[in-house]
């Protein structure tokens, strides 16, 4: 078994118009910036993929990554908890002009909806958002004297994931706090594509240190010297 994909272009080649795409990371930490930019390259060349639903904690920052996807007009809808950043211009402009949809989800509910999808749990109850406008229209129920809100699983067609180290079976490790949503999104997407700083042979990662087991991963592309989104933003980098 070898899940290696040889180039970034091939890694993102299957994503079609109208797909839902989970993108790992929290702000710049754990954001698979090279794969996002490869997807933008494909769109600029071919006009596809467009009408994407993007699932991320945030909604892009500055002029790179998800913000650049939004600027290009590739994104129909964002599902996120916090569409703000040090420079949320790209999302704000489109949102206030009515050109992009927003499904706002509390951060812990977003994480659990993704986890539930990966675990085959179609719905669950959480205390989060009970009695608030974000619970409008959702079933509520009492358990042991307290009220809870029913939330549904959140699946996606694709996940774009940033790992520190991968083996060819798709076993993954993550760097520092860059783990965040990445392991959950690996589980919840039909096709999970990973960019890894190091790609090694099976057995080279100590099984005790593996965070995401390869069963959740479909393809891996090695990006030996990945850029860090926050560092790029601080340098004023613009993409496309």
């Amino acid at each position: 078994m070898d899940k290696t994909i040889t180039t970034l272009a091939k890694a993102v080649a299957k994503i079609e118009d109208g797909s839902s795409v989970m993108i790992g990371g929290f702000g710049g930490s754990g954001a698979p910036i090279e794969m996002i930019h490869a997807l933008i390259d494909r769109f600029v060349e071919t006009g596809s993929p467009k009408n994407l639903t993007v699932i991320n904690n945030n909604a892009g920052n500055g002029y790179i990554g998800i913000a650049a996807m939004i600027d290009q007009g590739m994104v129909k809808k964002m599902i996120c908890s916090f569409p703000r950043s040090s420079n949320p211009r790209a999302f704000n402009e489109k949102y206030l002009a009515g050109e992009i949809e927003l499904e706002l989800v509390p951060q812990g509910t977003l994480a659990e909806r993704i986890r539930a999808a990966g675990a085959g749990i179609p719905a669950f109850y959480t205390p989060t958002s009970f009695g608030t406008e974000l619970a409008n229209g959702k079933p509520c129920a009492e358990f042991d004297g307290k009220m809870y809100v029913q939330e549904r699983w959140l699946k996606a067609d694709y996940a774009l994931i940033k790992a520190e180290c991968a083996d060819t079976h798709g076993n993954l490790t993550y760097r520092l706090a860059a783990r965040n949503f990445n392991p959950l999104m690996c589980m919840a997407a039909t096709d999970c594509i990973v960019q890894a700083k190091r790609l090694v042979q099976p057995g080279e990662i100590n099984p005790e240190n593996i965070i995401t087991p390869g069963i959740f991963v479909d393809g891996i592309v090695e990006v030996p010297d990945p850029q860090q989104e926050e560092a790029m933003i601080r340098e004023g980098v613009k993409y496309a």
Binding site: G28, S86, A111, R179, N182
Partner: peptide, 30 residues
């Protein structure tokens, strides 16, 4: 910048620190 807090500010670790994914993080909360 891979080591940040929820406010996206850079942080340091103390001895005994740990990392975990977002679902575990909110399990600690809820």
């Amino acid at each position: 910048w891979d080591l940040i807090n929820a406010g996206k500010k850079a942080i340091t670790l103390k001895p005994g620190a740990s990392f975990f994914h977002h679902a575990d993080s909110f399990a600690m909360v809820r």
